[in-house]
């Protein structure tokens, strides 16, 4: 999306010290929340936010995105930015999950996950539709010689001078899984925050519970979108913008993103909780 072509050389190496520091920050935030608010709703909200954030950060790694080269059939994947494609799917999931909020956390979270997966399933199908029927190009992966799911061989379908194109079946499945994780994560953050705000806001603002519902919904929704974007962008930094799906070697970098997402969500989460609980 940017004309700056140079990719950073962020290696696959794991910085152990930094990981440990990250985990310590995470534990400190969880401990501080427990110390400040006890094991009540606020603490559960923080745990929900951390789980949601990790689901988002992990899910982004499944979404097959090729960036600018994919638009020219030079690289496999979907031709757009990874953070925003994941956001599109995750927010479509959040839309469904928020609608089902009164059905309980489990049903609403799964509804959100299905919403995200549905969006990605339709989008990925249409990507292949355009490649095959619009441009006459079959799918081929550039990173593996055999599709790990179907066993189809890939290299002979790769046209000359490219790294592959389209979405092989494994990438399609990755896209759907990414949508499922993203939708579930975004919805979970929304639900725990909504519960907390509906509980705490009436006392804080001296209003009836029914009156503050719009505030609680808007606050929880806005924070869910904000935290989704933070986690998705951090995960996009981790894979330096493009990935083919779960079979891509870059996928192995996910532990870094899981730690980063957990810490980032914890920090954002404790502030979002303190708005009503301090």
């Amino acid at each position: 999306m940017s004309a700056i072509g140079a990719k950073p050389a962020a290696g696959a190496a794991v910085d152990t010290t930094a990981m440990v520091v990250g985990i310590i920050i995470l534990l400190l935030v969880i401990g501080a929340t427990y110390y400040l608010f006890g094991s009540g709703l606020a603490f559960m909200a923080l745990i929900g936010i951390i789980i949601g954030g990790v689901l988002i950060g992990f899910g982004v790694h499944f979404v097959p995105v090729g960036g600018a080269p994919a638009a020219m059939g030079q690289a496999p994947g979907i031709a757009t930015g990874v953070a925003m494609l994941a956001a599109g799917a995750g927010l479509a999931g959040l839309f469904g999950g928020a609608w089902a909020a009164e059905m309980g956390v489990v049903v609403a979270t799964i509804t959100g996950a299905i919403g995200g997966g549905l969006m990605m399933a339709i989008t990925c199908m249409f990507v292949n539709f355009i490649y095959v029927f619009g441009m006459g190009i079959p799918s081929a992966s550039g990173k593996v010689t055999k599709d790990p799911i179907t066993g189809d061989t890939q290299p002979e379908f790769k046209s000359q001078g490219t790294e592959g194109h389209g979405l092989p079946f494994v990438s399609y499945v990755g896209g759907v899984i990414g949508g499922l994780f993203g939708g579930a994560g975004g919805t979970l953050i929304y639900l725990v925050l909504l519960d907390l705000y509906e509980e705490e806001l009436p006392a804080m603002m001296n209003a009836l519970p029914a009156q503050i519902v719009p505030i609680a919904v808007a606050l929880a929704g806005m924070f869910a979108i904000g935290m989704f974007l933070v986690n998705a962008v951090l995960a996009a930094y981790n894979i330096t913008g493009t990935i083919e799906g779960p079979h891509d070697p870059k996928f192995k970098r996910f532990p870094r993103a899981v730690v980063a997402s957990a810490v980032a969500s914890a920090i954002c989460g404790i502030v979002a909780i303190m708005i009503v609980a301090v």
Partner: peptide
């Protein structure tokens, strides 16, 4: 972004506001 961060320039704006919105709403108290 003059370093080439691997993903688009717009994502930097998203992370800025995603983290900013939380700090801002807390501060209004």
């Amino acid at each position: 972004c003059s370093y080439g961060i691997g993903t688009g320039v717009p994502s930097a704006g998203m992370i800025a506001f995603g983290s900013g919105v939380i700090a801002m709403l807390f501060a209004t108290k």
